[in-house]
């Protein structure tokens, strides 16, 4: 059974690119309760930015939809970030996870998932075409201090 989080925040916002920075700031504020290093804080900000940008760019290409972000704190300094949309979904998740693969054209580097995984340590992506995508990332903060 999953342990109950010690603390959590749920946010829902429209998939407008201006909200990318809002999501980063909210995640950074939530993580700050663990007294993270600047590097850890920067890692979380970057990973959240990638996940939310994916929802803005790919989940709702032709319209504005709702993006949900859930931040949870578990015992042992574990931070979980879930970014969820009810957009178009990903046809081929393993392909989407490959570095430099993108359907976003020259504006996108295709490095989003690679960076999320590298900066958070743990990443899972669940998606159903037509139903939406859920990205779940975990990171241990404050391991050695």
């Amino acid at each position: 059974m999953r342990k109950k989080p010690l603390n959590y925040v749920k946010l829902a916002f429209p998939s407008r690119s201006a909200n990318e920075s809002l999501a980063r700031s909210a995640a950074a504020a939530f993580v700050s309760q663990l007294d993270p290093t600047l590097e850890e804080l920067s890692d979380v900000r970057t990973a959240v930015s990638e996940a939310v940008t994916n929802a803005v760019v790919h989940a709702y290409p032709e319209k504005i939809g709702t993006v949900e972000m859930i931040l949870r704190l578990f015992e042992g300094g574990v931070i979980e970030v879930v970014v969820r949309d009810k957009g178009c979904g990903i046809e081929d998740v393993p392909k989407a996870l490959e570095p430099t693969y993108t359907t976003g054209g020259a504006d996108r580097s295709g490095m989003g998932f690679t960076i999320m995984e590298s900066f958070m340590g743990s990443l899972s992506v669940r998606s159903k075409p037509g139903k939406g995508t859920t990205v779940r990332m975990r990171k241990v903060i404050n391991r050695v201090r």
Partner: peptide, 11 residues
């Protein structure tokens, strides 16, 4: 602040 959007710009 910079994320992978900056990488695309640099490329």
């Amino acid at each position: 602040f910079m994320d992978s959007s900056g990488i695309a710009l640099i490329l």
